[in-house]
Design a protein around this nucleic acid. Sequence first.
DNA 1: GTTGTTATTACCTGAATGGGTAATTTTTCT
DNA 2: AGAAAAATTACCCATTCAGGTAATAACAAC
Lengths: 209, 209
Amino acid sequence: MEEDIRIYIIEDDEVIMESLQFLIKEELGFRLTGGSVNAEDAILALKYVHSDVLLLDVSLPGMNGIEAIPLIKELQPDLNILMLTVHEDSDTVFSALRNGAIGYLLKGTPPNNLFKGIRDVLQGGAPISPSIARSIVETFRVENIPVLSQREMEVLIKLSDGNNNSQIAKELFVSANTIKAHIKSIYKKLHVHTRAAAIRKAMRKGLIK
Amino acid sequence: MEEDIRIYIIEDDEVIMESLQFLIKEELGFRLTGGSVNAEDAILALKYVHSDVLLLDVSLPGMNGIEAIPLIKELQPDLNILMLTVHEDSDTVFSALRNGAIGYLLKGTPPNNLFKGIRDVLQGGAPISPSIARSIVETFRVENIPVLSQREMEVLIKLSDGNNNSQIAKELFVSANTIKAHIKSIYKKLHVHTRAAAIRKAMRKGLIK
DNA sequence: GTTGTTATTACCTGAATGGGTAATTTTTCT
DNA sequence: AGAAAAATTACCCATTCAGGTAATAACAAC
């Protein structure tokens, strides 16, 4: 009773795009959620379409795939990004990984390897050098420590003390509406939607003790 | 514009009790919130009376002062407990400190020292060996790790993931009311009143990661 | 065999939260 | 000087939370 793996594709080459779409549509356990021919369009679409895996071409017209990664991660932090590349150029791959991609697939790879790579990701692996690559990735990735403004930090700390919005407002001599605004902003930066989750994430990231 | 320091006394010796009550009533900046002649009565009263400092006689009829400490701490975790003792018996003092008392006052102490001792506490000190005692206390105190039941832990973890009550209810196959009950119980054990504070405390205590 | 803890559910109420949108002011960076 | 980011406030709305009270059942401890 597994759910389909939802896949989104960003690829400008028509032939490759159609071939990938065809393969995914036909393969059991996979579902296509959409596709774009450039990063800019994709970023607009990805605000609304949620997927498990993104196949992202490295070379795109306009913004290239690697530049797009952090922007996409902003939208969907938990989306697993796999780069699509023609040859295994280590510089390219490394900067992709450093930016937040989880692995890469070679464009010439046979369908079965492609599917295996995608399934690997969902099981916590990283395609191509399955396990080792993953640990390298973790090491190299620049720990995306969210930057909260000074004011947001003050709010966060009081939040963690168990204060509610109006209590914080009083202590900081501003209106409760302001505190709400700050908290919304904190949620956005930490990618959470509740106070409880915000505190946990903030503690894990070392923002508060 | 300082607020009065609110003091509660538990002392079975009538003479000493009256003498302390008199002193506190007369002294500027101090206010008596109540008194009991034994721990059992006090525990009932302390459910309703909030104070800053509790003067607690070591030797009491029935439950002694030291045994009473953890029970009182359950009711008012932030209450500063000062033991009243006749002689500086280190065993007694140490077990009091280990149980959660913050310091001790000798019964023969002149009024001014008494007041100073109490003021010390409110300023983060610990009477008798003002600063050093404090750090010793912290070291010796058995870290009262709250014991959450298995079910409460499950709820806590899901809470920290940012789930709300009804989401947790679904995942655990019980009603949202049940989750509410568990969360209330968690709050009681952790001495908090909000989710945010619960998460922080739980993380600090190592209950969750 | 009674007492205590845990788990479960329910109902009520007022307060608080999270999300959306929008606008102004101040700071900061370029 | 002009653009971008941070801080401020406001209003609306539906949902959620926190606290209080209460009751039942299962199970362990004493």
